[in-house]
Amino acid sequence: MGWFSKKKSHIQKRGNDESKSPSSFQRLRKSLEKTRAKISSKFKNIASFRKKIDAGVLEKLEEILLESDVGVVPTTRIIQEIRNAWKSKEIEETSDVYDFLKDKLKQGLKERDVSIRMSSVPPTVIMVTGINGAGKTTSIAKLANLFIKQGMKVMLAASDTFRAAAAEQLDIWSKRIGSDIVKHQTGADPAAVTFDALEACLKRKMDVLIVDTAGRLHTHDNLMNELSKIKRVISKKIENAPHEVLMVLDATTGQNAISQAKLFKRAVDITGIFLSKLDGTAKGGVILGMRDEIDIPVKFIGIGEGAEDIQEFDADKFVDALFD
């Protein structure tokens, strides 16, 4: 256990270092470039000919937030807060509004534990869920790679036995990053694959087991029940496991993300969100307003197609990269 807790602190330290290193911020900034350019240019447009705040400025802000997928309720709340601050003369200049907005958004995302809950006794089991096409398999590869880089032994369980060639896709990744993998035939019982992976994982004394699951729409009850079953199999085999249940969320998703999070939470009690594909345009705005509805922290972000394109979530960095 001693050696492991050392590693644990190493992870956390590494996380902190990373958040300060300019390169990771630059990369995030770059990946959000298009979004940011759109948002800030829109805002600068108003700011350039309106020095003082007025109703028109607030309306424009509302439009910016809505177009970033923040959602109607959170947007209305944030705009109301800005309006109150404006009425009470806390802010007057248009140029101040932007910083005020950023502060509010940062506050909304903070005070959450984003580090991965590692088990004091290995293996740490991480279950990964999400809807079809969210990017589960790629995100798992990134996550596994992160642990491997820290010198841990990682095994993947190819429990997506539904989609054609899902196990092959995971297999290719496992070879690329150098992890173990347990897989069955397509159409096999996903819970059985998981069970075998757990056995193998204990036998081979792995540090981390990451369980892939088939993508499923959160509205299909029978498929969600299957997911609960996989989780029960894990809990039965290893006490307190799975230690993390992550939901992979496509950053282009709109307000449906909230319903996804709610239903996946009900089925398998997800502990965190992996925000994937954060390198296009309007990106992940839905997480800015999500807390009004459901409190699940974003733990990781995926910002590219390579195994290294993963970062721990940092609220300040995220908001700055989005709005600066």
Binding site: L66, E67, S68, D69, I131, G133, D250, T252, T253, G254, Q255, N256, A257, G280, T281, A282, K283, G285, V286
Partner: peptide
Amino acid sequence: CDSMTGQDAVNS
């Protein structure tokens, strides 16, 4: 197009 896409659907 994924019908669950948010505001970005039309951009792409």
